[in-house]
Nucleic acid binder design. Structure first.
Lengths: 185, 185
DNA sequence: ACGCCGCTGTACAGAATGCCCACCGGAGGA
DNA sequence: TCCTCCGGTGGGCATTCTGTACAGCGGCGT
């Protein structure tokens, strides 16, 4: 996989080139991201395996810039990591469901701890309502879902629950459109 | 940062060393993952920036093995990518909510297309019920959430909607426990 | 019993990384 | 107004990692 183009060879090899307009980095962008950040995130999202050097080539900026931006984005918590995205369906859990739990007063902490111990619980949110929780769960099959639900709701403090099985996922989790909007700002 | 240990220098440089027990790769594991796969995924999830060579050292296996496993996992779709995980809160969208939409017959496709065009819509599922959908949305503030909801539900075909604001996220999206379970199998 | 597949070491060239430097130019503080 | 700071640029260096290939070994399924 040869580089698309030489990383640097605009003018004479020793004369400090004119350097294009510095674009003014986000100006007062203290709490948000800049257009270059947006392009960088998009690039990484589309081709995660490329390195810093390749990014700098694609983005037409210096390598150091990309490195600095990346470090800053991670330091600010904008990019929390590059962990592998694992598809639950591919490891034997093709059924997804959302369960809404109603819990009795004061049992919140215990219920959370209980749910955190169930591997099939992928996500847990507390939401507005009378102490309600929203849980994302997966199962090996519809029949297996029953087992999972039993395990999830089989705990003191959970008063009632209702489950909705996911039929289709027309819009899988995405963040890029939001990043673009934040970058355009 | 020198390597913790030399990647290869156990015995005489030309004699094929005894080679530890090959562990029998998943045996009939056609639809699932193996213990080594599990360890690999866990390792990558915990330290995403390490490379193949470092993985092979930590896992005490040959580099080629790690490479082959990774390729296979990606080919099988178990690992769908290594995209950067962006925190919506860090780019100015700290409010998350789930909206349940009830749509009128036959409007499904249009509604999906509409929702897909809203950047604040991070995820969309169709769920059991009378043509219901579950949408995960984010906003810049509670006040901004009103704007987002208006935009989301302001579309012909959406009969009714109810929204639950996320207060807390005791269990952020996780997949490792499930991977462990699948690997233990 | 045989062949296949997966894992192991090893090797090599090419490329990328981490880190250094000097310099430029706008923004904000003195 | 001047000065300093910060972010960007371009270049260079030693070290490290990647991609790829090779040959041997050993369970497993046919």
């Amino acid at each position: 996989m040869p580089p698309a183009q030489s990383p640097s060879s605009p003018g004479s090899p020793d004369s400090p080139a004119p350097q294009g307009t510095p674009t003014t980095p986000a100006a007062g962008g203290n709490d948000s991201i800049d257009a270059l950040d947006g392009r960088l995130i998009r690039l990484l999202a589309e081709e995660p395996r490329i390195g810093v050097l390749e990014c700098s080539r694609r983005l037409q900026v210096a390598r150091g810039t990309v490195q600095a931006r990346l470090d800053r984005l991670q330091a600010k918590g904008v990019i929390s990591g590059f962990g592998p995205e694992v598809d639950p369906a591919a490891i034997g859990y093709p059924v997804t469901a959302f369960a809404t739990l109603e819990i009795s007063q004061g049992q919140g902490a215990d219920v959370r701890a209980h749910l955190a111990r169930v591997p099939e619980v992928l996500e847990l949110h507390t939401i507005t309502g009378i102490g309600d929780m929203l849980v994302r769960i997966v199962a090996r099959s519809n029949a297996d879902l029953q087992r999972v639900i039993d395990r999830v709701v089989g705990f003191d403090g959970i008063v009632r629950s209702s489950t909705a099985i996911v039929l289709e996922n027309p819009v899988p989790y995405r963040i890029l459109p939001l990043v673009d909007q934040a970058a355009a700002e």
